[in-house]
């Protein structure tokens, strides 16, 4: 196995060496600096949608999504300036207000990445007007349930279905705030002919949008599954 040449960059003032081509997110993580994410999941292709992992790079006025931007030699990255913290709090609030996120009655309470992030960032209330959407809940499948009101459109389920399970049952329809996760050509889940009922979508869902009926959430959630399978597949 040939290793890429190593490059050196600075993240939050710490000198770090990583192989060329590593993303900023991975470089930081490997060195104990955690950048908040919601849509990114190791083992799946990066998506760059949630905008929580935005970081500042000295010398550029733009913000860069750490999950997708490769580290380059001599880069100076800031991951936790006041502005970034403020932006992250804004993003979490906007997601909370977008659809129905009421932790107390949610199946994923205490096992939700959005909730954990809100706690971590100190978002104790939502200043924006909350929306109580009436998106469809589909429980036609034998045990998988999707409550689209809790969906944050991170597309982890879609990517794991396509890239790891290889069936691409799930995808998006419509755009803007009406965007929805659908099965096949907008079938109900019970009628989906391609779904293999592999449960991976439920395992990686960061919130309580996809869950397994009658199963304790602690047992369902297994967000390392993508990384695990990808690593095993790449093993020679």
């Amino acid at each position: 196995m040939t290793l890429n040449p190593m490059i050196t960059l600075k993240i939050d003032g710490v000198q770090i060496s990583v192989p060329e081509g590593t993303t900023i997110l991975k470089a930081a993580k490997d060195n104990g600096i955690l950048i908040p994410t919601l849509c990114d999941l190791e083992g799946l292709t990066p998506y760059g949608g949630c905008r929580l992992c935005l970081v500042e790079v000295t010398g550029s006025p733009k913000l860069f999504p750490a999950c997708i931007t490769p580290a380059s030699p001599g880069m100076e990255v800031t991951t936790n300036s006041d502005r970034l913290k403020d932006y992250r709090r804004t993003a979490v609030q906007m997601l909370m207000a977008e659809r129905v996120h009421i932790c107390a009655v949610c199946v994923a309470n205490d096992h939700c990445e959005l909730q954990a992030l809100a706690n971590q960032l100190g978002v104790d209330h939502v200043a924006l007007e909350r929306n109580f959407t009436r998106e469809q809940i589909d429980s036609s499948h034998d045990f998988l349930v999707i409550d689209r009101n809790r969906c944050i459109l991170c597309t982890r389920c879609i990517r794991i279905c396509d890239q790891i399970e290889g069936v691409h049952t799930l995808d998006l329809k419509l755009r803007s705030k009406n965007t929805e996760v659908i099965m096949d050509l907008d079938e109900s889940w019970g009628n989906s002919c391609s779904c293999t009922s592999c449960r991976k979508c439920a395992k990686v869902c960061p919130v309580g949008a996809i869950y397994i009926e009658g199963e304790p959430i602690t047992q369902t959630k297994n967000r390392d599954v993508a990384e695990f399978i990808t690593a095993r597949r790449n093993r020679k």
Partner: peptide
């Protein structure tokens, strides 16, 4: 712009809708 947002990223999808309110 809300109608035409693709729905991928949080600021444009969720943020603009809040602004509209």
């Amino acid at each position: 712009c809300i109608e035409e947002s693709c729905g991928k990223c949080t600021p444009c999808r969720a943020g603009l809708a809040r602004v509209k309110e």
